[in-house]
Design a protein around this nucleic acid. Structure first.
Length: 292
DNA sequence: CATATGTCCTGAGAGC
DNA sequence: TGCTCTCAGGACATAT
């Protein structure tokens, strides 16, 4: 499930294509249902062909390839992957680019010859869009997508979260409030600051939002250094087709019944919030007011 | 407006 | 061995 660190890793892996021209856009024939393209697939491919890649950006959990004339937005959702090497299997390649060599001198210059970019998605919930600058803001601008988790300030966070009565774990997943945190990292963040995931946002104090903000940054940055988390399904890989490393550092996610690494006593519990699994330590993350 | 639920999609794994 | 069933969860659509 690519969240901010995994998507950031994909973006970094794409840097070698900056300056290259998209010579061919291919949609391999596959037996599974096609993913959603916007505009529809044939026009999408036509629009991209011949364009030069200017830069790579990320907004929350989306990869944005900025072309000389338009923006390609890839939403990996659950199992999507962008890579420069062979993806996990050939049966779920949703799109492929053949790139020409770079035109100008650049710090990311690659040797001549062809580069391939693979858009792969096993479950096919992901989407690919090609938008103008105006459409990009329409779809991903303020009001649609909250501030990115790595650039939001503490004050912004307090302001956006303190109004809601929803459980803090559930609110962290709301991309309109905050972009980039998903189910895995939300549990990890709350464990680090020892807050019960069921606590309503409006009950958290300013100092706790400060801790949450700091822990969020720390954990996301650590995870980026490890190039994300590859879960047991093995789906997620970095651009060079290697597993991430952060799964070995998870404190609670997918550790139901195992001993908490912080207190060394309690075993990690799994509950369901808003139809999603939440993992936490019942000892370290006691509800406020019940401590002692 | 705020919040909750249903839907999309495939493959892995459980259970019989 | 092979079948059926459940589950994983991001983002959007629809309902309350």
């Amino acid at each position: 499930m690519p969240e901010l660190p995994e998507v950031e890793t994909m973006c970094r892996g794409l840097r070698p294509i900056v300056g290259c021209r998209i010579e061919k856009v291919i949609r391999p024939k596959i037996s599974v249902k096609p993913i959603r393209f916007q505009p529809e697939a044939e026009r999408f491919c036509r629009e991209l062909t011949g364009q030069r890649v200017d830069r790579i950006e990320r907004r929350g959990k989306r990869v944005i390839v900025v072309l000389e004339n338009g923006y390609v937005v890839f939403q990996p959702k659950m199992t999507g992957l962008v890579s420069l090497t062979d993806p996990p299997d050939p049966d779920h390649i949703r799109m492929k680019w053949l790139l020409g060599a770079v035109e100008k001198e650049s710090e990311h210059q690659v040797s001549s010859g062809s580069i391939e970019v693979f858009f792969w998605d096993r479950r096919g919930l992901g989407t690919l869009s090609f938008w103008t600058a105006e459409q990009l803001e329409q779809h991903l601008g303020e009001g649609k997508l909250g501030p990115d988790a790595l650039s939001i300030s503490v004050d912004q966070m307090c302001e956006r979260f303190r109004k809601t009565q929803r459980a803090v774990k559930v609110a962290l997943l709301d991309q309109k409030l905050l972009a980039g945190v998903g189910n895995l990292y939300a549990s990890e963040i709350l464990h680090r600051i020892e807050v019960d995931p069921r606590t309503p946002c409006h009950r958290l104090k300013v100092v706790q939002w400060e801790r949450l903000h700091q822990a969020m940054r720390d954990i996301l940055e650590e995870a980026i250094r490890y190039e994300g988390s590859t879960l047991s399904d093995g789906t997620y890989r970095n651009a060079l087709n290697q597993s991430g490393g952060y799964q070995n550092h998870h404190q609670v996610y997918d550790r139901e019944g195992e001993v908490c690494r912080k207190c060394g006593k309690a075993s990690i519990e799994r509950i369901v919030q808003a139809q999603r699994a939440t993992f936490f330590c019942p000892t370290c993350q006691r509800r406020a007011g019940k401590r002692g």
